[in-house]
Design a protein around this nucleic acid. Structure first.
Lengths: 126, 126
DNA sequence: CAGAATCCTCTTTGATACTG
DNA sequence: CAGTATCAAAGAGGATTCTG
């Protein structure tokens, strides 16, 4: 936690810690699978298998790993129902929802620039 | 290019192509280094070495690779001045600028949720 | 069903050296 | 200065097996 000094300034060491924490979070979150999972969950509550089907091309292992990471960072919550067979549900927290909004914008951006990018690629590859 | 049929519907094959193109672009762009580079360039025009210093921790090789990829996708332009020694400048295109805006939002998000995330981590690790 | 653990493969990455 | 090439190390990722 970055704490303010009585004089109103931040402690240098705290600022550096906050900075490296920010970079760490950014590295966690700015990756394909994490963002696709967040996008897939959306406002719903999905089970592991549903998620596996929703995120095209993700493997069992990658899904588990990324779900743990997102849970650890408090972006989603994991609810286990102690039934047989087990039932586990995932849903976004408020910060997760907030991040999803920016992912939505990124998806929009992709769609809007599909043509431009395809053209640029052809030019470059020539 | 996705073309509309005379009946107003899209060709299935074209839709599939557009979809896989979108996934490809998303995979290119949704990675740590690409986003950090886009953020670093901003509205400025930077030389290779300036960029290397601006993006904390990136290696020579990763910078080159990602710059090529971003150029290929038309997100930035590379201008070579035929001097000795060579001078190469990078700046964002309009689509690159548009993407940068969403990266900005993502950075804001990170800053705003630093505390929540750090707390969540401590809870999880316990 | 969800997931942990293992093994194995392929890609990514960094360090280093070389070129125009 | 900017970029390419190469090699070794590290890490990501897939397939499979086992458990509660």
């Amino acid at each position: 936690m970055v704490t303010k000094q009585v004089n109103g300034a931040y402690d240098d060491a705290d600022l550096r810690r906050a900075d490296s924490l920010a970079r760490e979070i950014f590295s966690d979150v700015a990756n394909k699978w994490a963002l696709l999972i967040i996008e897939a969950v959306g406002e719903r509550t999905l089970r592991f298998t549903e998620l596996r089907n929703a995120v095209e091309g993700i493997s069992h292992k990658m899904l588990t790993q990324n779900l743990r990471m997102l849970e650890r960072n408090g972006l989603l919550v994991r609810t286990v129902y102690p039934t047989v067979p087990p039932r586990v549900e995932y849903s976004l927290t408020e910060p997760g929802q907030a991040l999803r909004k920016t992912v939505d914008v990124m998806c929009d951006w992709t769609q809007r620039h599909l043509g431009h990018i395809e053209a640029a690629r052809h030019r470059f590859d020539a």
